[in-house]
Simulated assay, not measured.
Amino acid sequence: MSRLTCPHCNHSTLDHLALCQHCKTALHLEALAGVDPHVRVRSQYLAQRYSMILGTFGVHKFYLGEPLRGSLYLAFSWTLVPTVLGIIDSIKMAKMDSEQFEQRWCAHS
C-alpha cells in the first residue's frame, strides 16, 4: 500500500484513508467527489469513552451503528452483564489501531 504525507501535520498515512490518522485532517477531498455519501466517520476516542462511561446502556453500540446490540445492552442494563461487556469493549477499542477501527466501523452504515 502506498502512503502520503498529511499537509497539516506532515505525518505519513495510508493514501486510501479519508482522514489523517494523527490529526484527523481530511485528505485529498477532490477524490471524495464520487464517494458514497452514506459513509460514516466515527471517532475511536469517543466510541471508547462511551463504552467505558455509558456502556451499561449500550450508548457506544448505538454510536457505532449497531442498534440491535445497543437495544440488548439497554434491555439488560439492570444486570451487571452490559457493564462488564462495555468495559471489555472499551479495552478492545483501546488496543485497536485506527486503521482496524476505520475498517470495522467507518464503512457503510
Rank of each mutant, 00 (worst) to 15 (best):
H60C: 08
L19W: 07
T83Y: 05
S77M: 15
K61C: 03
V84W: 05
S77E: 02
H28E: 13
A31S: 12
E30M: 09
V41I: 15
R69D: 00
V59R: 03
T79G: 05
L29N: 12
H22N: 14
D36V: 13
P67E: 00
A47R: 08
F76R: 09
A18W: 10
Y73H: 11
H28L: 14
F57E: 00
L54M: 07
L29D: 12
Q48Y: 07
L80I: 15
L46S: 09
L64S: 00
Q48N: 13
L72T: 11
G65Y: 01
C20D: 01
P67N: 06
K24R: 12
H28C: 12
V35C: 02
K24G: 01
S51R: 00
R69A: 07
A18F: 12
H22K: 15
Y45E: 13
I87T: 09
A47C: 10
L64A: 00
F62R: 03
R49I: 13
A18L: 12
M52T: 11
G55V: 05
G34H: 11
L74F: 10
L32P: 02
D15G: 04
S77Q: 10
Y63C: 00
L27A: 03
I53F: 03
L14G: 14
G55M: 03
L74S: 04
M52V: 13
T83S: 08
P67A: 03
T56G: 06
G65D: 01
P37F: 11
Y45C: 11
